[in-house]
Amino acid sequence: MNNFKELQKIQVDKVEFRSSRIKSGITSSMGAFSFVGNMLDHFIPKVLGIFVNMAGGDDSKTTIRRPKYPNTPG
């Protein structure tokens, strides 16, 4: 017998809180983190490329050259 666990069961049955508000807060925060992450993924290579160019380097070696149309030589 463990009344600490029994107490928790009783509290779980009775508890009331703004569950949907909290859940939407979590979802929107995660969405914001994901957006910032994507932006960084997208722009950091370009910003680095600018610095490399400014320093007189050539960042074209790191750029993947893609053909204009699929299955055709570039």
């Binding site: 928790q8 779980v12 809180f17 703004r18 909290i22």
Partner: peptide, 20 residues
């Protein structure tokens, strides 16, 4: 787990808004 986590937060922080 949300209910159990909330109960723990509420019982330790002793404030519903802070717990949420």
């Amino acid at each position: 787990y949300s209910k159990k986590v909330f109960i723990k937060c509420n019982s330790l922080l002793r404030n519903q808004a802070k717990a949420e």
